[in-house]
Each structure stands twice: as C-alpha cells, then as structure tokens.
Computed example of a mutant assay.
Amino acid sequence: MRVHAVGISRSDRDVYLGRRPVPYVRYPVTPGHEWSGTVTAVGEGAPASLIGRKVVGEGLRTCGTCAPCRDGETTLCTRGYAETGFTLPGAMAPTLLLPARLLHTLAPDADLTAAAFLEPAACAAAAVLKASPLPGSRVAVIGSGALGLLAAQLLCAFSPSELTVVGTSPDRADVSRRLGATAYRTWDRASGLADFDVVIDAAGGTSSAHTATSLLRPGGRLVLTGIPVQGAERLDPAQVVARQLSIGTAFGASSGAWSYAVSAFSAGRLTPLELLTHQLDIDEFGRAMELTDSGDPRVGRVLLRP
C-alpha cells in the first residue's frame, strides 16, 4: 500500500518513550498502526482487483485457523501477540506491506484522511458490540479522547434515550455533542450521575473503572477497553456481585468489529474528521509526539503524512 495518512495514539507515544509493556512491542520497529492507503501491488495469490483500491487494514496478525479465530474472536488468537506498528513494521513510512486477508476495501470516493481513524473506530466498535445497548437505554462513556468519542458516535446508532460523555476538560463538550452526546460532564461534576444501563470506560485511568461501577444501575453492564494505567484502582467484587453487574472487556478489535466500523463509516454514521486538529509531514514526527503528549485539550487527533 501507498500510505496516505497515519494517526498517532497514546500507544505510539508509549512506544516512542519506551513505556509500552514488553510483550506488546519489539524494537527496533517502524511505528504506525492507524493508517489508510491505496494498494499499489499484490503478491502471489492475492487478487489483482485490489490494485488501485482504497483500503484500511487490521493490525493484529492472527493465524485464522485456531479455535478463537474460527469463532470470530481474532483478538484471542493462540499464536501469540503480533501487531503492525508494534512488533512488525508499521505505516509511518511511504509504503506498508500487509497480508491481503487483513484488508478492508473502501468506496472509490472514500475520504482517506477520515479513513485513517478507522483503527480506533474498530476498537470502539468492539466495546460497543460487547456492551449490547438496547434502544432507549441510558448510556455513559467515560473518556473524551478518540476512543471514547468514536464509541459515543457508534452508540448513537442504538437510539439511546440518554448518552452522557464524562471527560477531563470542558473544551471537549462541543465535539462530544456534535458526535451524538446528549450531555457532557467533567469529572468534578459527575458525582450526581447514576442509574445508567450501560457504561463504557474508554479512559483507562487510575479510578475510571471504579467510578464506572458507581454510575451503573443494579444489573447494569460495564465494558472496559484500552490498556489501563499501572496502579489502577481495583473493583470491589462484593459490590459487583451484590449489584449483579455484568463486566466485559475489549482489547483491540476483532475482524467482526473492523467490519462493523468500516460499514458504519461507509454509511456515513462515523464522521471521525471531527477529531482531527493537526496534520503534519512525517519529518515533523518529533513535534507530533510533543503535541500528543502535551495534555492540551485543544489538541485532538494528530495525523502524519508519509
């Protein structure tokens, strides 16, 4: 593929700073797992019809033959962890080589800049599908980063009666509402929230999972996604059992979650360009990392152009 654009996430920052857990990175590595591009050549056995197609691609290099893969749970592949941009060369380069079976083709008129957000959208889709919200549900998302806001937009398709996003900065209120939230609260104003049917924790903070359980009604469902920070506050099993809470997790995105996210994007139900604030050339990689690590609420998603 000729790479059109590549996004930068917290995981890329952790790779750059040497903070990613050892099993999930292998140095030296070319980073870049959020990308879009165009197929320029195919190898033996891959259909020639792919040449010229706009595409995105799954990052996890799964075997496709073990029991979890055959059940559709490709993120649980028993072959072990291997992922583009972390243990294998990524997209922060002019070209990227990927197994054809991991590609998802896009419409000829698809916006490749927006499509570069489909990897985090697929991860958000995995969390939303695990949450299984019903129409009319009261739903909350903890986290106003890309993962949380993309989850919020996908949740809109389930017609919730209320969709509240809880974030760290009041500056994220407008974009949250544009992406479908009916309300936005900062942490210091979240104490009165309660009785939600579904909560997705997309923040992975030190206390976000524990806080999420307090937002749920008895019998509610919590989904944890992303990699929690070290030292995160533990959940109280007695509270979970007594209130009969259901807890699910989502790490990465299965092939099914990818298909769901790509379909939502193609149907116009995902508009991820709302999250984009900076586009830089690849030789500005250092500045891109500084922006991503700045903590400035005005900095949304940063894209590099290889």
Score class of each variant (00 low, 15 high):
A181H: 07
R177E: 07
V128R: 14
G167D: 06
T168F: 07
A126K: 09
A131T: 08
L129G: 03
T168N: 09
A146C: 15
A131W: 06
G180R: 06
R178W: 12
P135K: 15
A152L: 08
A157L: 02
A131N: 12
L150K: 02
R185T: 01
R177S: 05
V141G: 03
D174T: 04
F158K: 10
P170D: 12
L129S: 05
L163D: 01
L149P: 03
L147R: 05
R177P: 01
L179D: 06
Y184M: 03
T182V: 10
A126Y: 11
V166G: 02
R172N: 07
L150F: 05
L134C: 15
V128S: 14
I142Q: 13
S169C: 11
S176D: 08
Q153C: 14
P135N: 15
L154K: 01
S132P: 11
S161R: 13
V166H: 03
T164Q: 02
R138L: 12
R185H: 09
S159F: 10
A127N: 06
D174P: 03
Q153K: 14
F158I: 09
V128P: 11
R185I: 00
A183W: 00
A151V: 07
D174H: 04
F158Y: 15
A126C: 14
L179W: 11
P133L: 14
P170W: 13
P133A: 15
L149I: 08
L134P: 14
D171W: 10
T164C: 03
R177D: 02
S144L: 04
G180A: 11
A152K: 02
V165W: 03
G143T: 04
D171C: 11
R177M: 06
L155G: 00
L134V: 15
D174Y: 02
P170H: 11
P160D: 08
L129H: 06
A151K: 01
R185C: 03
A127M: 10
A126V: 10
I142E: 14
L155N: 01
L179C: 10
L149R: 05
V139P: 02
A146Y: 12
